[in-house]
């Protein structure tokens, strides 16, 4: 699995499921959680999506902005769990 593909998939998920056509621009390094673009419920939904799609499991303490604050951080974290 290469990182660009994972980043693109995650970006697509964030744009289509969470942002839903709002005029927010999402780049790979756009802060998502600390900027409020993704709220706590959406974060949990995204974790559920990531667990299903990439067959990984998050430890409770890993659901944190330290790991998930941007598309590139999420992708790197997902790959580190594979």
């Amino acid at each position: 699995m290469n990182i660009e593909t994972v980043q693109a998939e995650i970006k697509e998920y964030v744009l289509e499921t969470i942002v839903q056509g709002d005029s927010v621009v999402i780049n790979n390094d756009t802060p998502l959680i600390s900027s409020g673009i993704i709220d706590s419920i959406s974060t949990l939904k995204m974790v559920e999506f990531l667990e299903g799609k990439y067959q990984i499991e998050f430890e409770p303490h890993e659901v944190d902005r330290e790991n998930l604050d941007s598309v590139e951080m999420i992708a790197a974290f997902v790959l580190s769990k594979k």
């Binding site: 706590s40 974060t43 949990l44 974790v47 998050f58 409770p60 303490h61 659901v63 944190d64």
Partner: peptide
């Protein structure tokens, strides 16, 4: 505040 936002963590705690 950080802990309570994380339902996975709260379920465990």
């Amino acid at each position: 505040e950080n802990e309570t936002k994380n339902a996975l963590l709260m379920a465990m705690r």
